[in-house]
Design a protein around this nucleic acid. Structure first.
Lengths: 242, 242
DNA sequence: AGTTAATTCGTATTTACAGTACGAAATCGA
DNA sequence: TCGATTTCGTACTGTAAATACGAATTAACT
């Protein structure tokens, strides 16, 4: 750790440093995807960037730092996109569906990123500070969980969403499931297609469709009628068997 | 030594070897879960088993071999259970739901296993021979994919399942999604609960419920109010016979 | 008992990789 | 040009994987 010193933002040197940092991150990202995070050696990253060990370590003092940096960048980058994707929609169901569509897009067009996330989750989740957990979900902060839940409540009231949904539970359950499915498909990649004869894209979209049907209220035809007001079955909080 | 069994050629020694193998595998499994597969060192496994490196390497010539052995064992062990779980049910929907319930059980009672699978997927998926891909899904071989699909088709015909489902697509989409969700929940573990205030169990079950609603045919035109809430819990008798 | 075969121990060694140290050389801005 | 900054080259430390092999131990069989 020679002189990390004070390099003021906007300085020529600082700019250069930023570019180098990006080069390293980009190269690493690619190698991680090809060989797997854990099997990637620093030597490979050095070769790919043309930097010497000593130089590389000026930027990242350990391999994990590179991994975390890539992860952070991805989160940030995605945050904006997710918000935009959801912006148009107005109802609760529509917003959720917009988000899911967005995730389908990611899966098709940015599968490397999803693969990375899958690896990251499995390997680093245990080290997470709890605040990071939300990842994609946390990215909705603009709309916010609360906003989302409110929309679900409205959706239930206006009859577009099934009665008996617990907004809190539903929201997390759906998003978690979809992220899980997305990452699994990305990880298994081509193998799924070979084995199932189904494209990743259509598998994911089918799942989305099923979820939509699962959330949507049964029949629009049905005019009110008190209909069993099913008490949202509160999740058995805190009482699990693990 | 309880069972001396038939004294066959090389048997006594072989038995001992088997026991040792298990000891190693069990110890490794535990450490993998505590520290993560990639961060676990051979030295730790040696300490836990009380074996020397030279001895350990007599059994597994590299760390990856241990990982693969654990994976294979799990698959095999689970195979039987999954089949049993599904046996009772008769209809397509019921069988699917039985399978999903089974997975909920796994998640509650065998979360370490699921966590391991999650890590394995993310880290080793790239090395899989394609035949291994199916894992859980392949375990249904007794019923068979084909059998499953047939049941779905029947379900559609007799009106218990939504029209317009493509059996092939639906089956894979659902199972894949549920596995993905299951593994994600297992990986994130307690953090989910802290952050969301929802138990893993209820999140997973809620997802299952949504899937069920997504697959089920819309409530029959009778005016009984929307979608009777049927829990697929036990035998899901009566109501949706088909 | 004693012989034999399988197993384990001890210990030493090789290889690979992570990460550090530091001065010389190159680069850049002024 | 000077001075700040980055990179290079190289040599070094430390840790862990994996192998080698003879000695010691244990179990099985007469």
């Amino acid at each position: 750790m020679a002189t990390k010193a004070k390099v003021k933002v906007g300085n020529p040197y600082h700019q250069h440093r930023e570019r180098q940092r990006r080069r390293i991150l980009d190269a690493a990202k690619e190698i991680f995807d090809e060989r797997g995070i854990d099997r990637t050696t620093m030597a490979e990253i050095m070769a790919a960037t043309g930097l010497r060990a000593s130089t590389l370590y000026e930027y990242f003092s350990k391999k994990d730092d590179i991994v975390w940096a890539i992860f952070s960048d991805m989160i940030e980058e995605d945050s904006a996109r997710a918000k935009i994707a959801v912006e148009g929609a107005t109802t609760g169901l529509a917003k959720i569906m917009a988000l899911l569509e967005h995730m389908a897009d990611q899966l098709s067009n940015d599968s490397a990123k999803i693969r990375f996330m899958a690896q990251f989750d499995a390997m680093y989740a245990r080290d997470w500070p709890v605040e990071r957990l939300l990842t994609l979900e946390g990215q909705l902060n603009d709309i916010g969980f609360e906003g989302f839940k409110k929309l679900i409540r409205e959706g239930i009231d206006d009859g577009s969403l099934r009665r008996g949904l617990d907004p809190d539970l539903t929201l997390h359950a759906v998003i978690n499931a979809v992220i899980g499915a997305q990452r699994r498909l990305a990880s298994l990649g081509t193998k799924v297609e070979l084995e199932y004869g189904q494209s990743i894209d259509s598998l994911f979209k089918e799942m989305i469709r099923i979820v939509e049907f699962g959330l949507r209220a049964p029949a629009p035809s049905n005019k009110n009628g008190p209909a069993p007001r099913v008490k949202a079955r509160k999740g058995s909080k805190g009482k699990r068997t693990l």
